[in-house]
């Protein structure tokens, strides 16, 4: 470095070395992220029953097989019902709590904040175990709580609600308080103000919350594994159980269906966001 002649040569060599390294890393990272996705997508169009490369015959056979199998469509249905339930529960609870934190001062605010956020940092296996042993033997009106879809919805909300809460707290902070005060001054009851003034202002946040909660629940399978039985098991749980016995391209089809649902949700958020931007600019 102290050599006087190096700066010139280094200056000419360095950019080339750097460009090559950057390119190599870019290829590495793109390949790394895309490999499991592309492999799954390709395998779902395989004709044969074995997972084996190269693929000789292409077909949509396993998609047909998936749709024709009641076990798999039931699991998909369970996944959807539980994900919708989780979205409703966690969005309602999360938005109301975030509004309370934004608008009011109350005792133990810091403690409550930590309490609401804490489940997010807990491993799924711990949450699943806790809920399973606490509600394992509980029956209400002769109906067992354990194994019910409702219990899974609430368990998934333990992860989804803190995220909604975090997202909505940040969103509520961006709204113009004077508009809320004006609505109050004009005599609107708080409930009406909330639904007719506040919620429309944060609609993008609400839509994002709903869809993120939906996606979290749709993808989760460790808690669901602990809390479901044969009739209520979700698609990821069924995938996990059949991966343990034998993998077939049907699993790839299930993965593709899960991923497509998630990307459909993401597109909805984007479309809504663009719509809101247009509204503002108009």
């Amino acid at each position: 470095m102290s050599d006087g002649s190096t700066p010139l040569t280094r200056r000419s060599v360095e950019p080339v070395v750097f460009r090559v390294l950057t390119l190599a890393f870019t290829i590495f990272i793109v390949a790394y992220v895309l490999i499991p996705i592309v492999v799954t997508l390709v395998m779902s169009f395989n004709e044969a029953a074995q997972i084996r490369f190269p693929i000789k015959v292409w077909s949509l056979g396993w998609y047909g097989d998936f749709i024709a199998s009641p076990q798999w469509t039931d699991a998909l249905k369970n996944s959807f019902i539980i994900a919708v339930g989780t979205a409703v529960i966690s969005t309602t609870a999360g938005i109301l709590a975030a509004w309370a934190f934004e608008r009011y001062d109350f005792a133990f605010k810091n403690v409550l904040y930590i309490l609401i956020m804490m489940p997010l940092f807990m491993p799924g296996v711990v949450l699943g175990l806790g809920v399973a042993i606490a509600f394992g033997g509980l029956e209400i009106g002769g109906v067992s709580i354990y194994g019910s879809r409702g219990l899974v919805m609430v368990a998934h909300s333990l992860w989804a609600m803190p995220l909604v809460f975090m997202l909505m707290e940040a969103t509520f902070r961006t709204i113009d308080n004077r508009v809320v005060e004006a609505a109050n001054d004009l005599g609107a009851p708080p409930v009406r103000t909330f639904f007719e003034v506040v919620i429309p202002m944060v609609s993008t946040g609400v839509i994002s919350s709903v869809l993120f909660a939906f996606v979290i629940s749709l993808n989760e399978f460790v808690m669901a594994l602990f809390l479901t039985d044969r009739d209520t098991q979700t698609l990821p749980v069924l995938m996990w159980l059949s991966l343990r016995s034998a993998g077939t391209p049907r699993l790839a089809v299930a993965s593709v269906i899960l991923a497509l649902t998630v990307f459909a949700c993401l597109s909805l958020i984007m479309l809504w966001y663009i719509r809101q931007l247009r509204k503002v600019s108009r």
């Binding site: 492999v39 395998m43 997972i51 993808n219 899960l258």
Partner: peptide, 17 residues
């Protein structure tokens, strides 16, 4: 992508790789 795709689907992807 890794965040939005289910862990089980990712496991299966590597399981075929």
């Amino acid at each position: 992508c890794p965040l939005l795709i289910s862990e089980i689907a990712i496991i299966f992807g590597w399981w075929m790789f």
